[in-house]
Design a binder for these strands. Structure first.
Length: 826
DNA sequence: GAGTTTGAAACT
DNA sequence: CAGTTTCAAACTC
């Protein structure tokens, strides 16, 4: 382990170029911890789902960075890490080991982080090479991808990790329970070690624990434990079943610290479920651990409240998660758990079986990426989770491709076919590892990104103009990397990869008659155009007006669609969850979303509602409601406008806009009378303030973004923003309330002007400069966009979101700045 | 469960 | 790069 650690460390240090700043991060205990963790995941290897041996662990598989949240939904989030999955790489490793701890990978900070989690390659590497570099394995592919999305994330995550760790220092909480927890885990593994490999994983796990111990001083796991959803404290055993959960958690969790903490804990405690795959569990567990640690730290910072709250209160921020969860989510719209993991809902499903493997495999990619729609299909298709196997993962049914082509979801997902598969003449099996690897290489040689997640979280590219967008860090938008080519399904069926991934169509799509509920291509384009035109406020206003008109003309459904599905769905959980999976098309339009009037939305919004309930004041609640309505209207417009503003970050911008609008709205109860804003009631002011604080990263509160996320895209994990605070807000109404109280003051302090500017700018609800103003305030830095990216990245499930909460504290600012620097490098 | 539809992947 | 074919999932009945 030591050697591994050192290797990782060295790699990490050397790798990140931009990382000079990251050096500190690397030094951070968290970073080290992460690096060490990587070995564990690899462990996962195998039991159930045979990953490609060479590629072995799912993580490996996904050399390419997958973002796809959906597919991954069921799968462990780890996969999402931009690792290179390519078997090639693994082989290339001198160390022989597929693994990859990643630390070295391309020297990118990202990879570093990822590596930690991903790499584990089973076979040979298992014991030995835990550390390996992923080299550039997928680097080429990844690079591109990273550039676009992930790259920053990891770097950010690393930073965040540092920050978080630092912050953790601040946190008073102690890890007293950590030892117990650790012990329990160890016991679990010892007990359950069924596998040969178990030793390795266990060892890795121990290492992690050891490292984690180092962190104890900084944060406490104990609290985390206690967090258990059920209120139980974990036996300490690591639930095999948890794995799937982890995925979900990861995907969603990052963003939602609160959630995450709870979740992770719960999962950990979950114990048992009889997972056969200890390794898998460990793998999944690692990330979780990291998350937990970070989140926990974050939570501690933000407030202990998060952990305490029941998971159910938490809302899904991560769209992917939501997607994954959809099936489950339907049950409880606002509840995170269900959303996150179907598996959670159905523990039995999680079994070690192949599905299980798959999940882990895909997960990595996933959450963020929702990954390949295709891959997602399987899962999606079934009852979400419970597909035939009960894993929730569907199996392939290939008959002619021998499961060696991308037609095969299993293969495409980087996992071996399993029993559940009905494939014929399948070569996608451990026995044919060589063949699989070769095939993979061939495919990758043709298309380096072939195994990369198809769905990418794009951050707003927005040029300087959209400083606001940049600042808005808040949301990232997810889109299909290639775009769909639908001609008959109107992007309303799962034939459409975009739709399948719960992402809107973008410019990259060549679809015809797009009616993607998550975002129409046309709209996307329109939005872009509009944005471009926005050179002047007038223009913006005009466009906005048009949008409003258009929206008005549209039926309520449509409006809601746009707002909710993609980006806005504030209420998200319910919406997103909505049955999208099962019948996305159906559920979406139907009653819930579309029918919902803004008001209904309001109702759906837990936070708000509760807020009303909250002690503060009913008036406040009312204001919120009104605001929400207005916001909804505005949002729809904004979405359109912003939607495209940034390729990658279109949604981002949207959210930003939304935020701006929100501010607006909040500030001005009456949208129409935005001008009246000045007359805002103190209550509204509070709300506004809150939103501000949350919204404005620049303010030093990453959380600010989260608030936006909240409403916005299910897709992106709000986590980005960070904030535990946000989470809290989202999660429980009460919390929201709390947050407001707690956070507002600081936020206000930090970001006073924003809203004001907005107000002035947009008298008619039209979003004008508000966003910009926000941006300015938020990030004076030009790197606002970068920031947004970082935030987004952080939010990404794959990596434990170290940042968000951190931001809340001063550290955030630093993070942001650092991120900016990094981004600049990028 | 069989057959059809669909669009991505693969091929030319 | 475009057009065609192949393929397996998604969908329908």
């Amino acid at each position: 382990m030591d050697s591994l650690e050192t290797d990782k460390m060295t790699t990490t240090t050397t790798t990140s170029t931009s990382s000079l700043d990251s050096v500190a991060i690397q030094d951070s205990t968290i970073f080290n911890y992460i690096s060490n963790l990587s070995p564990i995941k690899p462990v996962k290897a195998a039991p159930v789902a045979p990953g490609f041996p060479g590629l072995s662990s799912p993580p490996v598989v996904f050399t390419s960075p997958r973002v796809n949240p959906f597919r991954e939904r069921s799968y462990p989030k780890r996969l999402q890490y931009p690792h290179s999955f390519s078997p090639e790489v693994s082989r290339q490793d001198d160390r022989g080991k597929k693994i990859a701890t990643g630390s070295d990978i391309s020297g990118k900070s990202n990879t570093q982080l990822n590596s930690g989690f991903i790499p584990y390659t089973e076979k040979e590497s298992d014991n030995k090479s835990s550390v390996q570099d992923q080299d550039g394995s997928s680097a080429g592919c990844v690079d591109e991808y990273l550039t676009e999305t992930a790259g920053v994330e990891f770097a950010d995550s690393a930073r965040s990790a540092n920050l978080s760790s630092k912050q953790s220092d601040d946190v008073p909480q102690s890890l007293n329970g950590f030892n117990d927890w650790k012990e329990s885990i160890s016991r679990h593994y010892n007990k359950n070690n069924v596998r040969k490999d178990a030793d390795k994983p266990v060892g890795a796990f121990h290492t992690i624990l050891e490292q984690a111990e180092d962190l104890q001083g900084k944060s406490s796991f104990d609290d985390i434990k206690t967090v258990d959803t059920n209120g139980k404290q974990g036996s300490g055993e690591i639930p095999c079943c948890v794995c799937p959960n982890f995925e979900s958690n990861l995907s969603t969790g990052h963003a939602h610290v609160g959630q995450h903490c709870e979740h992770s804990v719960a999962q950990l405690q979950h114990a048992g479920g009889g997972c056969k795959d200890d390794l898998d569990c460990t793998r999944q567990f690692q990330p979780e651990i990291l998350h937990i640690i970070q989140e926990y730290e974050d939570c501690g910072e933000t407030t202990g409240t998060v952990s305490k709250e029941p998971v159910e209160n938490v809302m899904l921020l991560d769209p992917k998660a939501s997607i994954a969860a959809n099936s489950s989510t339907s049950q409880s719209p606002h509840i995170v758990k269900p959303l996150n993991n179907p598996a959670l809902l159905k523990p039995t499903d999680c079994q070690a079986t192949p599905n299980h493997k798959r999940k882990s495999y895909l997960d990595s990619v996933e959450e963020l990426n929702q990954s390949n729609p295709k891959r997602g299909r399987k899962k999606a298709s079934g009852t979400s989770d419970g597909d035939g196997d009960g894993d929730g993962c569907k199996r392939c049914n290939c008959k002619k491709t021998k499961c060696l082509k991308l037609y095969c979801d299993c293969f495409a997902g980087g996992i071996y076919c399993a029993e559940p598969c009905a494939c014929q003449e399948c070569f996608n099996r451990p026995e044919y590892e060589d063949t699989v690897l070769e095939t993979r290489q061939q495919i990758e040689s043709r298309n380096p990104l072939a195994f990369a997640p198809k769905i990418v979280q794009s951050v707003s590219k927005s040029p300087a103009n959209s400083s606001r967008e940049r600042n808005c860090l808040t949301s990232s938008s997810t889109k299909h990397k290639r775009g769909c080519n639908c001609k008959k399904s109107m992007c309303l069926k799962k034939y459409c990869e975009c739709y399948q991934a719960n992402v809107g169509c973008s410019d990259g799509c060549r679809c015809e008659g797009c009616k993607n509920v998550y975002g129409r291509k046309e709209e996307y384009g329109m939005t872009k155009d509009v944005v471009n035109k926005q050179s002047t406020d007038e223009r913006l206003e005009d466009a906005f007006d048009e949008k409003l008109k258009m929206v008005a003309s549209r039926n309520s459904f449509f409006q809601i669609e746009q707002c909710n599905p993609h980006n806005l769905t504030p209420l998200t959980p319910s919406f997103q969850c909505s049955d999208h999976r099962n019948d996305a098309s159906k559920s979406q339009f139907p009653s819930r979303r579309y029918i919902l009037s803004p008001e209904s939305d309001l109702a759906s919004l837990p936070p708000y509602r509760k807020s009303s309930e909250s002690p503060r004041n009913s008036n406040y609640h009312d204001l919120l409601i009104q605001t929400r309505k207005d916001i909804l209207d505005v949002v729809s417009c904004h979405q359109e406008l912003d939607y495209d503003s940034a390729e990658t970050g279109g949604e981002f911008s949207q959210r930003c806009d939304v935020l701006a609008n929100i501010h607006h709205l909040t500030s001005l109860p009456d949208p129409p009378s935005m001008a009246k804003a000045s007359s805002m009631s103190s209550k509204t002011m509070d709300w506004t303030n809150v939103s501000r604080g949350q919204l404005c990263p620049g303010s030093g509160h990453s959380s600010s973004v989260s608030s936006l996320c909240w409403r916005s895209s299910p897709i992106t994990p709000m986590t980005q923003f960070g904030g535990a605070k946000l989470l809290q807000v989202l999660d429980s109404d009460d919390r929201l309330y709390d947050i407001l109280e707690d956070d507002i003051p600081e936020i206000l302090k930090d970001t006073p002007t924003h809203f004001n500017a907005m107000k002035g700018s947009s008298p008619n609800k039209k979003r004008v400069s508000p966003p910009h103003s926000c941006l300015h305030e938020l990030g004076s830095s030009s790197s606002a966009s970068l920031r947004s990216r970082q935030l987004i990245l952080q939010a990404m499930p794959p990596f434990p979101p170290l940042t968000p909460c951190i931001d809340s504290k001063e550290g955030t600012n630093h993070n942001i700045e650092d991120s900016q620097d990094d981004s600049s490098n990028m």
